[in-house]
Amino acid sequence: MKSTYLFPYQIKKLSGFIFIICFCVLLVTTLMDWVPSSFNFPMFAIASTEFLKDATYFSWIETNVWYDLLTILVIISGILFAFSKEKTEDEYISKLRLSALVKAVYCNYFILILAIFFIYNLAFFSVLVLNMLSTLILFIFFFQRELISVKRNNS
């Protein structure tokens, strides 16, 4: 079965490795609330609102891009890992992939609804940040779990 929307199998291992490393670094630096000061750069902002200041639009701002770079790396490597072909692709693998994607979306929005009910004020900002990555992470988890389960049942 030909899947035109998947990346080549050859990038799976490398993208998976980069994804795990960058995700761990992002998690640790977020929990420790640490950013390296050498990542301060002027950046062009379409919209920006600093604390206790008015919003500015289409302007250059001085900001630390550590979290931005890490998040972009996590997203890109995660997408490359999640949506690269398996060693042998066929219609059953495609069905497992679709099933995992649907489960990930349902699970993600269920957790988000719970968060809307039980988490408030500034703490909810953390929920929104995590929500950027949660669908992708859940999909990777569900799909890999299905593949391992199938391989285990067949051995």
Binding site: E91, Y92, V150, K151, N153
Partner: peptide, 22 residues
């Protein structure tokens, strides 16, 4: 038939219905 062994196993166990082509 150009599929994986896991696919044949899943079909035989009636866990998966093959496409018309397969």
């Amino acid at each position: 038939v150009e599929v994986t062994r896991q696919t044949i196993n899943a079909i035989e166990l009636e866990k998966y219905s093959p496409s018309a082509v397969l």
